[in-house]
Design a protein around this nucleic acid. Sequence first.
DNA 1: ATATAATATCATCAGATGCTGATATGATGA
DNA 2: TCATCATATCAGCATCTGATGATATTATAT
Lengths: 116, 116
Amino acid sequence: MLRMAYPKTYELQAKFFRGFADPSRLAILEVLRGGALTVSEIVRATGLTQSNVSNHLACLRDCGLVVTRRQGKFIYYELSDPRVEQLLRLADELLAGIAKGVYECTRYTAEERGHG
Amino acid sequence: MLRMAYPKTYELQAKFFRGFADPSRLAILEVLRGGALTVSEIVRATGLTQSNVSNHLACLRDCGLVVTRRQGKFIYYELSDPRVEQLLRLADELLAGIAKGVYECTRYTAEERGHG
DNA sequence: ATATAATATCATCAGATGCTGATATGATGA
DNA sequence: TCATCATATCAGCATCTGATGATATTATAT
């Protein structure tokens, strides 16, 4: 695939957005909007498996979307910046205004779509 | 993979964000910030191949990030909403403040990282 | 109709991604 | 020390994704 013909910026930005580009991670970000939670609390709140959550949290952390703090044997995760929420909200707004077409952005080769 | 244990919302939002989660698409969005362009102009401006651009444009359109209008044999693409730019700018800001950790969000299993 | 320019679609394939289950690490308490 | 809870990491896999090159479509002009 190669894909390295871009200024570092686009690669970086793309990775950043990929943090938001998965339903499991969005679910995690959502539950974290209520404040810091431990991994097992996140597991309970989302219904995902422990290793799955752990992997996604690592991703979110690498993307800079969450930060951690240890407390005894617990590790608390929380949103790293209020702008993370802001970005989610802005996306929600935009999406609400668009809504129609996002059914299938998959495969980015857009076959016939737009009906159940 | 299956992955359908989520309220439609997260799936939708994830797809929406995926529109932003690729360097080629970010490059396209960037050149479109200057206003509407035809496909071939976008091809020239980005250096990507025609079919590649065309595929990405289809994706961006499905995600609602761009809209099109035909003029003769040309098709003009442009950003669908000023909030698309706004979202990009907000992401830029956030990313600038974070910057450090986004080197490797790939594989989301976070091996040892953070050094060239 | 033919030729040509602009754009879209298709098949294919390498590589990335996310999930699961098992195992490893780390902290706490007996 | 051992047992246990909390979390992280790993291997394997099925799938998704993006790039390429070839072909199809659409519009214009002759």
